[in-house]
């Protein structure tokens, strides 16, 4: 579903992502781990087609992102890191706009928006202006936008960032449920989430994959029970980099 081959991105002399390759199949939830500045967001932005890689291939459901970006983007639901939204709209208004963009019309649009509102527990704020929302609601509104068209591929950049423990739990459960029939790539630096929601994890450091496997495999390979220890073992401190 998501297939990334030899992805490289340089900003001037700095290489943010270096020869990265991975696959996410249908029914799989891939946790994308790594310290801040490891290149997680940069990778996701390339996979979603926000900017082109310096070199490498990206294929979404067999569609080449670089050759047919519009068709490939139609398959993806994306939650950017900062959960950007148009502050001057209401939650429902924003979702209707996103539904329009995704080509929904009439009754189908209404249904898609209602379903997204329900899935992300936004009923209480549906008619509220976005600039009055708390961080948790903002995040969920943007998440709702990514689920609206029931995409085959979901890419979530730190979906639980800024949520309270209850909301975190709900979002993880949601990811797990959705993961049954979608390919999901989500980034986090909270290691509990790997056990809670992922079927597989990749640890990235300074733009390179340093570990790859199911949580159990990772524990066996690095002979450690704690993902924290593994994480610390394979990644560099930002003060040392």
């Amino acid at each position: 579903m998501i297939e990334v081959t030899n992805l490289t991105k340089s900003f001037g002399a700095k290489t943010a992502v270096n020869d990265l390759s991975f696959k996410v199949k249908k029914g799989e939830v891939l946790g994308f781990l790594g310290p801040n500045g490891a290149g997680k967001s940069t990778t996701m932005r390339m996979v979603t087609g926000y900017f082109p890689p310096t070199s490498g291939q990206i294929s979404i459901c067999g569609i080449d992102m670089l050759k047919s970006p519009e068709q490939a983007k139609a398959k993806i639901g994306y939650l950017p890191e900062s959960a950007p939204l148009y502050d001057d709209m209401t939650v429902a208004g924003f979702l209707r706009f996103a539904a329009d963009i995704r080509g929904f019309k009439g009754a189908a649009r209404k249904e898609a928006v209602e379903k997204a509102i329900e899935t992300c527990f936004l009923q209480k704020v549906a008619h509220q202006s976005i600039d009055t929302l708390s961080k948790g609601y903002r995040h969920r509104t943007c998440l709702a936008q990514s689920l609206l068209h029931d995409p085959e591929v979901l890419i979530l950049d730190e979906p639980t960032d800024g949520l309270d423990p209850n909301q975190k739990h709900e979002v993880r459960e949601l990811i797990k449920t959705l993961g049954k029939d979608k390919a999901i790539l989500f980034s986090t630096h909270i290691l509990e989430e790997v056990d809670a929601a992922c079927s597989r994890a990749v640890i990235v450091d300074q733009g390179v994959i340093v570990a790859n496997g199911t949580p159990t495999e990772l524990r066996e390979t690095y002979k450690s029970d704690s993902l924290h220890d593994i994480f610390r073992k394979v990644t560099t401190l930002d003060t040392a980099a």
């Binding site: 979603t48 087609g49 970006p69 983007k73 950017p80 950007p84 148009y86």
Partner: peptide, 10 residues
Amino acid sequence: NTIELLGTFP
């Protein structure tokens, strides 16, 4: 940063 949404919409 809504430009990122626009940039990833089809």
